[in-house]
Simulated scan of single mutants.
Amino acid sequence: MIRGDRDSQVVAVSSGGRVLRLSADPRFAASWPRLAPHVPGAVSGELTLLDAGTPVDLVLENGVSPGDARRLINAHLHRLHLGHDTLCVHAVVLRRPHEGGTVVLLGGHGAGKTLVAIALAEHGWRPVAGDVALLDVHPVPAVRGGTSAFMARPSVVARWFPGLYLDLPDADRVDLRSRWSGVPDPAGGQVLAAVVVGVDGDPSARAGLHTQDAHTAATAWLNASTHLLDRILESSPTVLRLVEDAAASRRRVALVKALASRLALHTGRGTPQHIASRIEDLTRAVSGPVRGAAW
């Protein structure tokens, strides 16, 4: 650890029950409520001021942009959680009400994770993570939290869900948190299913979910677990990939292999509603039917 600058504040960022200590310009606290929804496992009000001179894990240089501050914090949280056998994965996560348990939706940008999440929400599922999830590997795969923001493009949402009126037709993206009834669950619980989704718009698709072999599954988890490191900073030459040293990389690969060996990874293509229906079928035997809509 290093010590913070005397002219900066030392604060503690809580993420999924773990703490990252950082030194930052006093103005950082004012930007935290805007950043927190995009930091996995964080809550906007949970920013604790620590004593000056407290050893810190990260120093945010004066003048760093809010976007770069978020990217730097998330990269260091990636490393922090690895030390506790937790992967930070690019995923949307929802939780079944009443019975509990989660589904983890994987896929690249534009794959349709949020669209499938909306379709599941219409069957009562609750939000846990909108973009990055904290996934414990041991003793059983379980979600301990994630980013609370659920960003979506209004024009795309309107295409698939014309009845879900978004009063921001000209916005590039909108946060769907305001559309959920209640608030996101702070933690999800044991993973019932993991699905790589691909919304392709084929209304005639009737195929079910397909199970991936272990090697393909491990590769998918490996790619998803580098999301917080695959960021380019706006005004700094720092390479976020270097936040993860060789030992941490080996640890992550071991976690990915363990995850792939104990949790089946499925793929599903078609409309959001079709994929959501297949996910319901997949998880029903584990946790029973769900009634009631979350919107």
Rank of each mutant, 00 (worst) to 15 (best):
A69I: 06
Q190G: 08
P272A: 04
S236W: 02
A194P: 05
P40F: 06
F161P: 02
A117N: 09
L255Y: 07
S15G: 05
A194F: 12
V140Q: 14
E46M: 05
D85K: 09
A207N: 14
L209K: 01
A129F: 09
I232K: 09
G53F: 03
A171P: 10
A29E: 14
V174G: 00
V132N: 01
D281G: 02
G163S: 11
R262T: 15
E280G: 15
E234V: 06
A111D: 07
D245N: 14
S8I: 00
P184Y: 05
S44P: 08
T211H: 07
V89H: 00
L82P: 05
A152S: 13
L282T: 04
V197M: 06
W32A: 07
W125N: 04
T219V: 10
G268K: 01
P162E: 07
T216F: 01
E61D: 13
D281W: 06
L35P: 06
S236A: 07
W160C: 03
L166M: 04
L115K: 01
V64S: 08
H274W: 13
V143A: 04
A258Y: 00
S261C: 06
P184G: 03
A152D: 04
R3T: 12
R71C: 02
L209W: 01
R173W: 03
I279W: 10
V39H: 02
V195Q: 02
D25R: 10
G201K: 12
G45T: 12
G83H: 09
D136M: 06
L82H: 07
V290C: 15
R3E: 14
V239K: 01
S181P: 00
D175S: 03
G4E: 07
V196A: 14
A149F: 09
L222N: 14
I2T: 14
A129S: 12
G17P: 00
A285T: 11
Q190R: 15
V128G: 06
L166P: 00
D57H: 15
D7G: 15
D7C: 09
L134W: 01
H138E: 12
S204R: 11
S178T: 12
S155A: 12
G189R: 10
G201C: 08
A133Y: 03
L106T: 04
A217G: 11
M1I: 09
G198V: 03
A224S: 13
L192S: 13
P40Y: 06
G268L: 06
P33N: 10
L20G: 01
S8G: 07
E46W: 06
V10W: 01
V195W: 12
R252W: 10
S249M: 13
T267Y: 05
D57T: 00
D51N: 04
D200W: 02
D213P: 13
A260D: 04
L20Q: 03
R79C: 03
L49R: 15
S287P: 00
